[in-house]
Design a protein around this nucleic acid. Structure first.
Lengths: 201, 201
DNA sequence: TCCTTTCATTGACAATTGTCAACTCAATTT
DNA sequence: AAATTGAGTTGACAATTGTCAATGAAAGGA
């Protein structure tokens, strides 16, 4: 169960992590299983955990006044999930997070998080790399959101992150891209040949 | 000139910075003046500097095939600007950055940046706090982009960041929000009474 | 000061995308 | 197997936003 975390750390730290360091890290995480649709965080609660996804998939989203869901993040294996602002500031969360599939995660409380930050330098290094990559990806997503049409955004996602499209239902992809499910359906129909191209390889 | 940077560091570090530490930091930065419209970075170049804005304003943007500008960031005093991906990976930048007003900045090269990271812990702490705040702000911007209509995005910006709207020309605000200048103009006309309310206090 | 250039506004029209309702299909439940 | 549920598709129509062109206003340069 913790092996995925070890692989992740080795990938993002420039050096292989020592057994002692990994023991320290491992002991601070709590394994937990989530069933499909189970909440990891509900709007209004304080986010108590940041989670590393070992297996499964989660979405982070808001619900507007009309009851429409807006997905700000879709995450699968080897990603972190949690509401940063709520986790660090201890404020009520603006977002909901729930499991899209049955999932296994490793949870880290704020106390344990701080403990690791102050005692395991490798952990800090990994976080910093992760933050950095995240920032770059987020910048690109903003650029896509303000520069591209609905169709361009979908095709861009298909080209850059086909795994997401295969894994999550269409209505979630629509919400993630900020378009209606019907529009995605029509875009798919229109570009059926392109999709075919991808699938045939 | 460097005083603004010192204030900034004191604000984001939990402790007052020592004179020795600040000397180390200060010596690594290069002061530079930018005239209005002058490039700090052009698409295709490698981003050689990250800049701290002492006075003035910058924009970061892409230009699409049709020649339309899409602004991903608008920054003023006490913000940093630069293309992170290009700066750290030494890859050609996807973005342009130029001065919207005559501006004074403090430049930091990658070598000096790394030097500071490895010798001045306070500097690392400030960067980490900054990153963190940035991440939260960016998340909110994504949420706005996928959840709100053009009008809602404008009114939201007016409510949360009126300084930006006062400082940058309308067409840049439009580009920043991902809408045409004409649409912004019409939204403003429609909501003239609301704007009046803000101005009258 | 005049001239040029750029920015903002407005109108008419077009394109994109959203909304609502009906229908199909597949999966799950009873 | 029948029934129910939910996701995806499709059509008709509406709302939003973009595009293009003309005009007016303001700012900067000669």
């Amino acid at each position: 169960m913790h092996e995925a975390l070890r692989k992740y750390i080795n990938k993002y730290a420039s050096v292989e992590i020592s057994d002692e360091d990994f023991e320290k890290i491992k002991n601070r995480f709590i394994s937990k299983h989530f069933r499909k649709n189970q909440y990891l965080l509900q709007e209004g609660e304080v986010c108590k955990y940041v989670a590393f996804i070992v297996k499964g998939a989660f979405r982070q989203y808001t619900i507007d006044q009309k009851g429409i869901t807006h997905i700000v993040n879709l995450s699968t294996e080897n990603w972190w999930i949690g509401d940063r602002e709520s986790f660090t500031m201890l404020t009520p969360a603006d977002y909901n997070i729930d499991a899209v599939e049955d999932s296994d995660v490793l949870l880290l409380t704020k106390a344990n998080f701080q403990e690791l930050v102050s005692t395991v330098p490798v952990f800090v290094a990994v976080l910093s790399t992760m933050d950095h990559n995240n920032q770059i990806a987020t910048q690109k997503r903003i650029n896509a959101a303000i520069s591209f049409s609905a169709e361009e955004r979908y095709l861009n996602l298909l080209a850059t992150n086909p795994a997401l499209i295969q894994r999550f239902p269409q209505n979630m992809i629509a919400s993630f891209l900020g378009v209606s499910p019907e529009t995605i359906s029509r875009i798919r129909k229109k570009n059926a040949s392109i999709k075919g191209l991808f699938l045939s390889y």
